[in-house]
Simulated scan of single mutants.
Amino acid sequence: MAPSGPGNLINLVCWALALLLALGVERALALPEVCTQCPGSVQNLSQVALYCKESSTLMVQARCCTNQKGTILGLDLQNCSLKDPGPNFPQAYTAVIIDLQTNPLKDDLGDTFHGFTHLETLVLPQTVTCPGGNNSWENVTYHMNNKICKWQKNLCNSTGEPEMCPENGSCLPDGPGLSKCICTDGFHGYKCMRQGSFSLLMFFGILGSTTLSISFLLWATQRRKAKTS
Rank of each mutant, 00 (worst) to 15 (best):
P6W: 03
L12D: 04
C14F: 12
L21Y: 02
V25W: 14
A30S: 07
P32D: 06
P32C: 05
E33G: 01
C35F: 00
C35N: 03
Q37S: 04
S46A: 07
A49I: 11
Y51K: 09
K53H: 14
T57R: 11
M59R: 09
V60A: 08
V60W: 06
C65T: 05
C65D: 06
C65E: 00
T66I: 04
N67M: 03
Q68F: 12
N79L: 13
L82A: 02
K83L: 04
G86Y: 03
Y93Q: 15
T94V: 10
Q101A: 12
T102I: 07
T102A: 14
T102E: 10
T102Y: 15
P104S: 07
D107I: 13
D108L: 11
D108C: 05
F113A: 01
T117D: 13
T121Q: 01
L122K: 04
V123S: 03
N139R: 13
V140I: 08
V140C: 08
N145P: 08
N146I: 01
N146E: 09
C149P: 01
K150G: 04
K153A: 05
N154T: 07
N157R: 10
S158I: 08
G160N: 03
G160A: 13
G160R: 13
E161M: 15
E163R: 15
P166S: 11
S170N: 00
C171W: 03
G175M: 01
P176S: 14
G177E: 08
S179I: 07
K180D: 05
I182W: 03
C183Q: 04
G189C: 01
K191G: 03
M193G: 08
R194V: 09
Q195A: 07
G196D: 06
G196P: 01
S199P: 00
L200S: 11
L201Y: 15
L201N: 14
L207S: 15
S209H: 10
I214Y: 00
S215H: 12
S215V: 12
L217T: 08
Q222D: 00
R223K: 02
K225V: 00
